[in-house]
Design a binder for these strands. Structure first.
Lengths: 331, 331
DNA sequence: TTGTAGGCGTTATCAG
DNA sequence: CTGATAACGCCTACAA
C-alpha cells in the first residue's frame, strides 16, 4: 500500500528532478525527447501510477463527477438510469474521471450536499428533472457545474434530453393517421417534467390533425393497478380506439389487466407506449413504442459536464435519436 | 468555489493556530473547553466545511469506497443491486464515506483497476461472485481491503451473503412435505456462485426427505424464453408436481408461457421462486417465493468493509434474514 | 532543456 | 493546553 512509487522516487532513481518526471508524464512543458523516453520507460517498467488524489489536490480538482441517483425505488426507472450510467462511465473513464453516486430520495438531499461541501466532485449530473426540484435548486446556489438530464423550466440550467416531445407527437400522429382518434392517455406523476413534456407532444399531435382532445380520456398521476383496472373497463365500455401509456411499466400493467379482463389487444383495444425497455420484452403482444438511446444520453451529458468543468461554453441540447417502433399492438 | 474558508482562515480570524482549529474540529488532542466552543461556534456561523480531499490526502485516505457494479445489463439483477446500494449509502454516509461506482462487464476490469491504481478508494465491495472471478482475483493481488457479497470458494476472501442455501432448502422441503415430490428446477448461469448455492439447497432438501432427485428435471444455464417453452411443455406432459425457478425473472417467464399455453397455476402446475422482487408484483397469481433483506445486506457489507479499512478483524458472515412466503401458486 | 521552491488544506510530531 | 513546523504527492511559476 504505502510502498507506492512516487514521482520523487522516480526522479531519484533516474537522477533527474521531480519537475522533469512530472513533465514527461503530463506532456506539458518542454522536455528533451531522450529524457522523456527514459522516464516513460522507467515508470512503465516499475509500474509507477500517479496518485490521482495528490494530483487533484494540487490543482483543486477531484477528477470525480457526482451522479444523483434516485433513491426512491422504482423498477421502471432502473433500466433507464442503468443505461445512462453505462454511457457516463464510458465517457468519464476516458477522461480520467470517476463517478461518485449520490442517492437522493425526495427532497432529502443531504447525500448530495455532502459530496459538494466536502469537495468530493468537480461537477454533478442530475438524472431527472422535477417540477419543484430541490437538488437542482441546491446545485444552482452551490455554484458547482452541473448538467440536468431532462427538461428544465429554468433557462439558466444546462440540460440535455431525448426529444420526448417530438417523439410522442410523432407516435400520436401516426395513430391518429391510422384512424384512431379516440385515444386515451395514461401517465405518471405530474411532478416529473417528463410527464408534462409527453403530454404536450400528445396535445400537439391532435392540434396538428385538427382534432379535439377528449379531456375525459386523459388520466395522469396514475401508477396504481387497482385504479387502472377501473379506468380500463370504463375505456372499453366507452369504445375508445386505443390507449397510450407514458411508460413501459404502465403499459405492462395495462396488458396484464387486459388479459385478466379478456380484452384483446389489438382487436378490442390498441395499445402503445411512450417509452420502451426490456420490461415489455416478455409481452405476449409486441407493443408499439418509442425507443431512445439512453446510453448515448448519459454519454452526451457527461461530455457536456466535462466541457463546463474545463471552462468551455456549452449549450443546452436535445437529442434527435428516437425511433418509433410500430408493432402488433396497434395493428 | 475558491472562496471556500480554510482552516487557516478560521485560525487567523480567531487569533489561534491552525492546530487548535484542527483539534477543535476533530476532537483529538487536548484543547480548552472555551477555545473549542469558540472555534466550533465560528465555523458554524461562517459555514466552514473541511476539505475532505485535503484531509484524506494528509492521512493517505480517500474516504471513498468503490462498488463494483455489473455493466452487463440484466433487468433482474437491477432491483437487487439498487437495494444493496441504498443500504451501502446509508452506512457509508454515516461514516463520512462516499461511493465510487466501478462498472465491470465480464472480465473487462479496467474501470476497477483505475480506481485502485489511482488511489481513488480505500476499499471495494464486490456485488456478486462468480466461479472464475477476475475482479476478485485482481482485488486479492492488489492488497486493498474488499468484501464480496455472495459466496466465495476462496477461504481468504471476506464475504457476506444472505443464507440462500438454507432458504432454498427450506422452501424445497416445504413443497416436498406438501406432497410435491416431482419437482423441476430451472436456474440461470452456472458461472454465478449463487446458482450453485441454490442448487445445493434444493439437493439438501431432497436428501433430508430421503427422496431421490430426478436429474432429468434439472435445467440450469437457462434464460432463453424459447427454450423454456419447450421445457415447460415437456414438464407438463411428464406430469411434474411443480417447478421451482431460481429467480423472479425466470418465474415471470414461466408464468407468461403458462398463460400462453393454457397451463393453469396452481391447478395444472405448482410454481415457486427462489428470489422475489417487484418483478413478480404484477403477477396475476401470487407466487410462492423467498424474501431477502438486500438493503441490509448492503449495509452489513459496508460496515464490514469500513471495519477492515480501520484495521479491525472481521469474519465472514451469513445473514439469517430470509422469509419463505407461501402464496397461491403452490396451493 | 532542466531544476528549485512554494503551495494546495489538513493532520501529526514535537516543542513550549 | 497551545503553537510552530513538517509532511502527504503533485503541479507550476520562476530561475538557471
Amino acid at each position: 500500500m504505502s510502498n507506492q512509487l512516487t514521482i520523487e522516487d522516480v526522479a531519484a532513481a533516474l537522477g533527474v528532478s521531480k519537475t522533469t518526471v512530472s513533465r514527461a508524464i503530463s506532456g506539458k512543458g518542454r522536455i528533451g525527447e531522450a529524457t522523456r523516453n527514459r522516464v516513460l520507460e522507467y515508470i512503465q517498467k516499475n509500474n509507477y501510477k500517479p496518485n490521482a488524489v495528490a494530483k487533484g489536490f494540487s490543482q483543486r480538482k477531484t477528477f470525480n463527477i457526482g451522479v444523483v441517483w434516485p433513491g426512491d425505488y422504482s423498477l421502471v426507472d432502473l433500466p433507464f438510469f442503468q443505461r445512462c450510467l453505462v454511457g457516463m462511465s464510458e465517457v468519464s473513464s476516458g477522461y480520467g474521471y470517476d463517478i461518485v453516486i449520490s442517492l437522493v430520495t425526495g427532497d432529502e438531499i443531504s447525500n448530495l450536499k455532502r459530496i459538494i461541501e466536502n469537495h468530493k466532485v468537480d461537477g454533478v449530473i442530475l438524472t431527472r428533472t422535477l417540477i419543484d426540484d430541490k437538488p437542482c435548486e441546491y446545485l444552482k446556489t452551490s455554484g458547482i457545474p452541473f448538467i440536468a438530464i431532462g427538461t428544465s423550466l429554468d433557462e439558466d440550467v444546462l440540460s440535455v434530453d431525448n426529444d420526448h416531445f417530438d417523439a410522442c407527437r410523432e407516435l400520436t400522429s401516426i395513430l391518429i393517421a391510422k384512424g384512431h382518434h379516440r385515444l386515451a392517455l395514461i401517465g405518471g406523476s405530474l411532478n416529473h417534467m417528463i410527464t408534462r413534456t409527453r403530454y404536450q407532444g400528445f396535445v400537439e399531435a391532435f392540434k396538428a390533425a385538427n382534432k379535439k382532445i377528449d379531456e375525459s380520456l386523459i388520466f395522469l398521476n396514475q401508477g396504481n393497478e387497482q385504479k387502472l383496472t377501473e379506468i380500463l373497463k370504463q375505456l372499453v365500455a366507452r369504445k375508445v380506439d386505443g390507449v397510450i401509456c407514458m411508460d413501459d411499466q404502465l403499459a405492462g400493467y395495462v396488458m396484464s389487466i387486459c388479459r385478466a379482463q379478456h380484452i384483446r389487444i389489438p382487436e378490442d383495444l390498441r395499445l402503445a407506449s411512450f417509452y420502451n425497455s426490456n420490461i415489455l420484452e416478455n409481452a405476449i403482444v409486441p407493443v408499439t413504442s418509442l425507443n431512445f438511446d439512453d446510453r448515448n444520453l448519459g454519454a452526451v451529458a457527461t461530455r457536456m459536464l466535462l466541457a463546463v468543468i474545463d471552462g468551455e461554453h456549452v449549450e443546452k441540447q436535445k437529442l434527435q435519436n428516437y425511433e418509433v417502433v410500430m408493432k402488433e399492438s396497434t395493428k
